[in-house]
Design a protein around this nucleic acid. Structure first.
Lengths: 196, 196
DNA sequence: GTGGTACCCTAACGAACGTTCGACCGGCCT
DNA sequence: AGGCCGGTCGAACGTTCGTTAGGGTACCAC
């Protein structure tokens, strides 16, 4: 499954950080999880915070590039946003451990590696701006009914980002069903895309 | 301002935990912030995790009791929910440090003091259930248009809880304005309370 | 005055922390 | 055969961790 030892380490650290938090997990615990000694980790990462950066940066950037790439093809703004939000929820679930670490330990990056923090924040910001622009354009085109596109974008992103806090695979609904429902609540409900 | 030394400690610890995280803050750092030595903290709290519990439990319980207490008086379900969500946002902002700690370090409580964790989760759950019931009743009364009251409650709570992630007092809008806007987006938008 | 209690101190405990160092072992290149 | 090098190791570095023990001072009750 995991090709290189480096990926193996990133994967183990992601799981531990997500479950216990960055500061609660020692280098020796990460090493134990992949069956080596703590000192051997420094062959792959120069420090603990660089390991955190690898986790947070990789998945976040990949996600945002993916999402911003195929915004184009759908005909209406409503359909574009529905697809974007649905993909957002399913991706966030697929990479929920990485995203949990990326969101929660962002402050640690801010303190220990400010340049990495700024870089990540900028990436995230570009995504938020894209969503906001989509909403604003949809409003201008008469598809959406919304007083403040900026606030609506923040509200909708807060909404879709919160799915991982409660969703469990053992529940009655699949993640795809939840993703579709959330996209509908945002686009057809909050933004009033469909006349009732 | 702060009457007792105990409250002073809780306040200082809240600020430090919120900014840096539970595990990143040592007992000596908390003691420094109130001008005493680390060992003196154990005169007020038997352990670090009890201090965390005091922070997380106090504000969460007070909030939920407040919110559930005065649900009654408003005539329509829409008005009740609007008021509830507006108060939710403004309270969460007023106690944003405590709430940030309560939300983020919940896992630590789960690991170190499972009974406290269960107790907090139950309290939170009762609040979520109350919101869901309000939505369900509003649907039954024909005020709301909503396919899945459970999902809608989760979405709306995720939405209002996320305000603290971006809101800053230096921005253009007051927290009261944002609270009203969020309540409107949830009740009139997502739940379709007002015919468009 | 005597005893007790509230509060704070210094000092220390053992454990864990992130990180560094030097050595060893096994393949690959020449 | 000999040398380089990626990968791992044990051991140790100095620091910080949460916590405990015991002592001291100020005030309050009797």
């Amino acid at each position: 499954m995991l090709t290189s030892r480096r990926e193996e380490i990133v994967h183990a650290a992601t799981e531990l950080f997500a479950r216990q938090g960055y500061h609660a997990v020692g280098m020796r615990a990460i090493a134990d999880a992949v069956g080596i000694r703590g000192s051997s980790l420094y062959h792959y990462f120069p420090s603990k915070v660089e390991l955190l950066h690898a986790i947070a940066s990789d998945s976040t950037k990949r996600f945002i590039e993916l999402q911003l790439a195929d915004l184009r093809p759908m005909p209406t703004y409503a359909e574009r946003l529905r697809k974007l939000l649905g993909d957002h929820v399913t991706y966030f679930h697929a990479y929920r451990l990485e995203e949990a670490v990326g969101l929660r330990e962002l402050q640690e990056l801010k303190a220990s590696a400010p340049d990495y923090y700024a870089e990540l924040q900028a990436t995230r910001r570009s995504y938020q701006d894209a969503v906001e622009r989509l909403i604003r354009d949809g409003c201008a085109a008469g598809e959406f009914d919304c007083a403040d596109a900026h606030l609506a974008a923040l509200a909708i992103l807060g909404m879709v980002n919160s799915v991982n806090d409660w969703f469990r695979d053992t529940g009655r609904q699949s993640i795809e069903a939840v993703a579709a429902a959330y996209a509908a609540m945002a686009v057809d409900g909050l933004l009033g895309a469909t006349p009732r």
